[in-house]
Simulated assay, not measured.
Amino acid sequence: MSNVIRGLFATPQQASLAIHQLAEKGFAEQQISLVSNETYDKDSFSISENTKFPEGVAIGAASGGVLASIGAGLAMVGSVATGGLGILAAGPIATAFFAGAGGGGILGGVFGSIFPDEENQYFEDEIVKGSVMVSVECDPAEFPKVEQVFSSCQAKRLNKSS
């Protein structure tokens, strides 16, 4: 996991919309990861195929399948030392957690070599507070496409590495 762009969203609905839009732009579920705290479950990320968001973005069936697959794959990957709140993850990031990359903080173990510790800690703190992280592993040439999606879905912070 070296070419990654990640966004932080205030709500599961914003994160879900971002995943739908990423799928519509051709990103595969194997490229997209989701991390949240345990107060959410797969139903928190579901959006009806007929949903129309205020921005006028209709949700299609193809992108709905990607989100359903990612949501179904949510699994507990660790807990935060302060308070023991569980962290859920799905996608390639969950595989990295289960492969033993969980040292150095929940996100530091996976992203430690590609993002600064301060950024990893900020994202982790925000996830504990209820934000949701979506990350995409892709060619850096595709970063602008992901940035556009994250911005249109109101990501409150994003960062990228390559």
Rank of each mutant, 00 (worst) to 15 (best):
Ser2Leu: 05
Asn3Gly: 00
Asn3Ser: 15
Asn3Thr: 12
Arg6Phe: 08
Arg6Met: 14
Phe9Asp: 02
Phe9Ile: 05
Ala10Phe: 06
Ala18Pro: 10
Ile19Trp: 05
His20Pro: 01
Leu22Asp: 03
Ala23Gly: 13
Lys25Val: 05
Glu29Ser: 13
Glu29Pro: 04
Gln30Phe: 05
Ser33Asn: 03
Ser36Cys: 15
Ser36Asn: 04
Ser36Pro: 06
Asn37Gln: 01
Thr39Pro: 00
Asp41Thr: 08
Lys42Asn: 04
Phe45Gly: 09
Asn50Gln: 13
Lys52Ile: 14
Pro54Met: 12
Pro54Ser: 12
Pro54Glu: 14
Gly56Asp: 07
Ala58Lys: 14
Ile59Gln: 06
Ile59His: 08
Ala61Tyr: 07
Ala61Arg: 13
Ala62Gly: 10
Val66Ile: 13
Leu74Ile: 06
Val77Phe: 12
Gly78Asp: 09
Ser79Phe: 04
Val80Asp: 11
Val80Trp: 02
Ala81Phe: 13
Thr82Val: 11
Thr82Arg: 13
Gly83Leu: 07
Gly83Thr: 12
Leu88Cys: 04
Ala90Ile: 02
Ile93Met: 08
Ala94Arg: 13
Ala94Trp: 01
Ala96Cys: 06
Phe97Thr: 04
Phe98Cys: 00
Phe98Val: 01
Gly100Glu: 08
Gly103Gln: 15
Val110Phe: 05
Phe111Ile: 00
Ile114Asp: 01
Pro116Ala: 12
Asp117Gly: 05
Glu118Met: 05
Glu119Phe: 10
Glu119Ala: 14
Gln121Thr: 11
Phe123His: 01
Lys129His: 10
Gly130Met: 06
Gly130Phe: 07
Ser131Trp: 00
Ser131His: 11
Val134Cys: 02
Val136Trp: 06
Glu137Gln: 13
Pro140Cys: 15
Phe143Glu: 08
Phe143Ala: 11
Pro144Cys: 07
Gln148Met: 09
Gln148His: 11
Cys153Arg: 07
Cys153Pro: 03
Gln154Cys: 06
Ala155Met: 07
Leu158Tyr: 12
Asn159Cys: 13
Asn159Phe: 06
Lys160Glu: 10
Ser161Lys: 08
